[in-house]
Amino acid sequence: MPTNPFHTPPPPQDFAATDPPVQQRSRRVRLNRMRRHLWNHVVTGLAVLSTVIVIAPLVAILAYLIYKGASSLNLAFFTHIPAPVGELGGGMANAIVGSGMILAVASVLGIPVGIGAGVYLAEFGRGGWLAAAIRFTADVLNGVPSIVMGIAIYSLIVMRQKHFSALAGGVALAIMMVPTITRTTEEMLATVPHAIREAAYGLGVPRWRTVLSVTLKTASPGIITGCMLAFARVAGETAPLLFTAFGNQFWSLRLNQPIAALPLQIYVYAISPYDEWHRLAWGGSLVLIVLIMVSVTLVRIYANRGVLKGAS
């Protein structure tokens, strides 16, 4: 509006006349409040609903798994090797043992390296650019798809040796364990009070001994938790084993040979056209999931018992 010096100010308004009547105005406020509260309830309802939707598949999967799996389990499942196509019976004894061996190799290789790297990050490299870079790389490695790990190890070990092997499978899983263990070790060591390290230094204990016997020991419950979680995670991995451990229908206890593994066997059976094999796949899945759930739950209980009770 152009400013006009001769513009006469408007006559004093009768506000009561131009504004909506009090009654009407309060209705608008009330409607607004109702709308806001309604919206509040709608969103609350949606959040609850989505939680239910998320929990539903877990219940569905577990229920179906127990229903199908339990009926497939019998003694033969744990003692026999797979029966040839067309025959009834047979079990997954070789796959259970094979998984155990692969996981043992993975733990032997992955746990020390993971803990060592975590110790470096927490005790030696803290605050430095190298530690930051390593921490970031570990997080990135954690996100690399497991199938990629499988073909990388295939290219490194299997192609050289010209045959699949339990060892190659173990190496692939070990690499997948390292980043998880490294990060939990670092986090757990960071919770150990500095005063405890000082107590050891003050007694003239060398640094390596302080780390091993004091710091790591104090943080050990949390570190064990991390190792168990990493173990549970790789125990069910199938993709990295496809072209490394490869699978085996027969007994094999040699690290240097193709070996059966529970997840691999489940995969082979699941995509087969035979009902008998489907049955075994459900049984195998139940065994696998019980193994994983038990370790996760144990970890949970262990972790809840308190890591640093009474530490100042």
């Binding site: 009070p193 005063a195 405890i196 000082e198 107590a199 050891a200 003050g202 004091v214 104090t218 640093l308 009770k309 009474g310 530490a311 100042s312």
Partner: peptide, 8 residues
């Protein structure tokens, strides 16, 4: 030290 720091 200032605060007791036993090895927990």
């Amino acid at each position: 030290f200032q605060r007791p720091n036993p090895f927990p």
